[in-house]
């Protein structure tokens, strides 16, 4: 961060700590020297205008950027006592600790059951068939979807409504028992009711998980998150307790963005 002034922060133990992170696509720098703590069992919202690097930064947390050839990440991201970019880290295992939910619900072309069972199967988490069923049902329950699909677990995941599909993806992420769930605009394709259901779900999920969410909706960030980080042109302009950011931000750029004066 270049500027020292930040809004008041709620102190809480970070589960993840990014320090001096830079991200390049080829020669183009998309993230510039960003440091941010992710507090445990809280929801952190990343906000900022389109193209400011929110998704890029979010993808750093579970090394999703590794899948993009031109992308290079430097700096340090600590999780569970080690730098996740160290060569010793097993990326597949890392991604089971840190799950991800995308903007567009992307269920596999399989049954509802298999969508959720997929992760536990490839990670060998279930010892028996019964155990696997337990995991699937528990995950669907935690995602607030079970009651709606309990009698059609063998139907394709794609037969569900948009909001249900998104909750299916959340169930799929939960099934491998992660600690952190990253969400990139999870509600942008949903109507207000489906959005409210997901927001309510996130609120109950934070007891067990830590959530980092990218959102374009200021109202959503204000409603669901405890910490908000504002990005602009690849920089972290300001981060702090959501309440302070939305009532009394320290930086003029934050003030201007959240009150609709820069787009």
């Amino acid at each position: 961060m270049t500027e020292e002034k930040t809004a008041q922060t709620d102190a809480s133990t970070p589960i993840m700590t990014a320090s001096g992170v830079d991200v390049f696509y080829g020669k183009k720098q998309a993230i510039k020297n960003v440091s941010l703590d992710i507090p445990e069992n809280q929801i952190t919202a990343l906000i900022g205008p389109s193209g400011c690097g929110k998704s890029t930064f979010l993808r750093c947390f579970n090394r999703m950027n590794d899948t993009i050839d031109s992308c290079r990440v430097t700096g340090d991201i600590q999780f569970a006592g080690q730098d996740i970019y160290s060569s010793k880290v097993d990326v597949v295992a890392l991604r089971s600790r840190i799950g991800m939910v995308f903007q567009k619900a992307n269920p596999f072309p399989k049954s509802i059951f298999d969508n959720v069972a997929y992760g536990p199967r490839i990670h060998g988490l279930a010892e028996t068939k019964d155990h696997l069923e337990d995991i699937v049902i528990t995950s669907l329950r935690r995602a607030g979807l079970y009651d709606e699909v309990s009698d059609r677990l063998n139907e394709p995941g794609t037969s569900l409504s948009g909001g249900q599909q998104q909750r299916l993806c959340i169930a799929r992420a939960i099934a491998v028992d992660p600690q952190i769930i990253l969400m990139d605009e999870p509600c942008s394709a949903l109507d207000p009711i489906a959005t409210a259901i997901i927001e309510n779900l996130m609120d109950s999920m934070k007891e067990k998980y830590t959530i980092v969410i990218v959102t374009h909706s200021m109202q959503q960030a204000a409603r669901v998150s405890q910490q908000t980080a504002f990005f602009h042109l690849g920089e972290l302009v300001e981060s702090g307790a959501t309440e302070s950011i939305f009532t009394n931000p320290a930086q003029e750029r934050t003030q201007n963005y959240i009150s609709g004066r820069i787009g």
Binding site: Q219, A222, F246, T247, N248, P249, T254, Q255, I258, S259
Partner: peptide
């Protein structure tokens, strides 16, 4: 309008 920050105040 759901104002924030300075506007909200």
């Amino acid at each position: 309008r759901q104002p924030f920050a300075g506007d909200l105040r």
